[in-house]
Computed example of a mutant assay.
Amino acid sequence: MEPIIEIKNLTKQYENGRGIKNINLEISEGDIFGFLGPNGAGKTTAMKLMTGLIHPDYGDVKIFGHSITEDYERAMAKVGCLIEIAEAYAYLSAFDNLKQLARFYPDVDYQRIDEVLELTGMSKYKHEKPKKFSLGMKQRLGLAAAILSRPKVVILDEPLNGLDVEGMIDIRKLIQKLADEEKTTFFISSHLIHDVELTCNRIGVIYNGEILNVESTKTILRNYATLENYFVSEVERNGRLSSSVG
């Protein structure tokens, strides 16, 4: 089976020394892939490169076989994303924000807008304006926007930021539902180890801009008590973290 997302030698280096180096990954259909690493590890840089928001120094990303650098429109045609902060028009209602976005998708009608508001727990706030929303509510609306067009790939950068426990559980269930029932492929970055453990079926550890290892969650938890133990073991084994940590 051909990978849905194929990342080859992806590299982007900044003057401050941060960035990513030679990232190689393959993501299959229906995967919920967790990109796990601390703040500053290179997660957001990688996701901006994956979605064409910035250009790589070298390397490439292919989505459904189409290169982000050479065939951007086809590569992104079936992709929804939420990178960094969930942006919205502050003085439009939640519904009207999604209505503006729906103009770009001929198959998205008002029924679909109501559907994604329901899926993300935002139905009761559909007529309220984001300027009054908490960070968690903005994240929910951002996720509703990301799945509005029924994308086959969803790229989410720290999607659980600002959510309370109930919100985290709701969004986790939604992600798993879409992966199971609609074979939606998710690429999720996070520094929240426990939530990655509960949400993702495959995990890649990134540290100092480099991929340390990629493994299935089941295999990790067969060999380690928790994902946190695995993470610490990986960075210690690769000489990036002093043995005093953890």
Rank of each mutant, 00 (worst) to 15 (best):
S243I: 09
L135S: 01
E210K: 12
L101K: 08
G204H: 00
G42I: 13
D157W: 05
H55T: 14
N223M: 08
I23Q: 00
S233A: 14
P106I: 07
S149I: 07
N229F: 02
V196M: 12
I54P: 09
N97S: 04
K183I: 04
Q176R: 11
L25A: 13
K12C: 04
T226W: 03
N9W: 02
K62A: 09
Q100F: 15
L241V: 13
Y89N: 10
H194W: 11
A94H: 00
A102L: 14
S28T: 13
E234A: 13
I83G: 09
L49E: 01
N238R: 06
Q13K: 14
A94Y: 04
V153K: 10
I4D: 07
P38K: 11
G40P: 07
N16I: 14
L98W: 01
I220E: 01
N238I: 01
K78L: 05
I211D: 01
V165D: 08
P159H: 05
S242M: 10
L92D: 05
G52K: 02
A41Q: 06
Q13L: 11
Y125G: 01
N22Y: 02
Y14D: 09
Q176K: 14
I220A: 02
I27P: 00
I20C: 12
K218G: 08
Y58K: 10
M47I: 10
M1F: 06
N201Y: 00
R103S: 05
M122T: 02
T69D: 13
H194D: 14
L160R: 00
I171N: 03
L221S: 08
K138S: 08
A146V: 00
L119K: 11
K177V: 00
G162C: 10
A144C: 05
V232F: 14
F231H: 03
I147Y: 03
K177C: 09
G37C: 11
E197M: 11
Y14E: 12
L101N: 03
I20N: 05
P3Y: 02
V196I: 15
I220T: 00
E181T: 15
A145S: 04
Q139S: 11
D96H: 13
K129V: 14
C81Y: 13
E26Q: 14
V79W: 02
L143E: 02
G162T: 02
G121P: 03
E158C: 09
V108M: 07
H66K: 14
